[in-house]
Amino acid sequence: MTTDPRTLADRLLSRDRDAVAEALNLTDDQRPERQAAALKLLDILEREAPFPGAARIGITGAPGAGKSTLLDALVRELRPRGETVAIVAVDPSSQRTGGALLGDRIRLRSGSSDPGVFIRSMAARDRLGGLSDATHAGVTILALVFDRVFIETVGVGQSEADVSRLVDTLVFVANPGTGDVLQFMKAGLLELPDIFLVNKADAGPIAERTVSELESGLSLGERSDAAWTPPVLLTSARDGSGVHQFVEALDAHRRHLQNDDRISQRRGEAARALVIGALQRRYGSFGLQQLGGLASLRSRLAEDPTPSAFTRIARLGAEIEEALRKSD
């Protein structure tokens, strides 16, 4: 099957939903000729996509926190407003096939037959809870066609750091009375989320105590964005209480990022982190030494931000491989 990247890009840029599945399948195809076409497609999309485009929102938290039920409630809240929604569920991966083990594990009653809702399950490859390069590519594609893109990950430590570099707003969903908050604080990840959500408000005093724990923990830490104080919200995804306030908090953070061009800075940092992370995973520290080391690589990325992140990965990867061949 031959895919013309320019034609496919034009369809996506015109918000053609029928082009989404074809583009996602292309970027997840590991055959060399398909990967070359995917690279051309992503390069066009990164250069020509309207800015800032769709809101990119990460939803993370331990298994059982109610993330999928929350997403169902968000769809019920957003669709009557006329907003379209895309959801990426990042699954653990099969070590043998590299595919998602759980398939489309989000079963949204509210969006199962709605053309304004798109659900895609993507594998984390060999990174438990982390994000594969295909996830980054998928978000780039979905953000062109849908109004909001949600990325749901299993909160096992690595995912919070990974997804925070991919999204505009990171939401941590806490499960009352399970020790999630304490573990999150011990892992030093409390400074990452932009919004904290205590789900299952019907748990009563236990849920309220979890809210207090989070608020106390936030008062002890420092954040890179001192101008934003993360709200701690109490919701019940099951009956929808607090979901409207949650959407208001998402919109407030979006407005905050658009002030003083914070969103541009955040996405630039995310693009550089994507390049560095991809090269580190593929070639290790020895490979990065072929580029002069990590500090040298950071300087090169900061000096010339023009190429797309995916083009940078390909070019720098080729440079590393050429240096390694010469050293043999």
Rank of each mutant, 00 (worst) to 15 (best):
P63C: 06
I119G: 03
E321N: 04
S113T: 15
V149G: 07
R272D: 04
V154K: 10
V171S: 05
S113D: 14
I195K: 09
I263T: 04
G116N: 07
T3W: 02
N25I: 11
G82N: 11
A54T: 11
L45Q: 12
R272G: 00
E322Y: 12
D126W: 09
G111M: 14
V275Q: 05
L218K: 03
V247Y: 12
D260R: 10
E208F: 01
F286W: 02
M122K: 11
A36R: 13
V90Y: 05
A174E: 00
G242M: 15
D304C: 06
G217L: 07
F51A: 14
A21M: 15
D28C: 10
L102R: 15
R76P: 04
F146N: 02
A295V: 12
G217W: 07
D16A: 12
S93Q: 06
L41V: 06
G157Y: 11
A174F: 10
G293K: 09
G103P: 12
L78V: 14
G177R: 09
I87S: 10
V163L: 03
T140R: 08
S296F: 01
M1W: 03
E248A: 13
L102S: 15
E215H: 05
T235Y: 06
L274M: 04
D261K: 12
A174Y: 08
G82L: 09
T178E: 14
R81V: 05
G98R: 11
G268D: 05
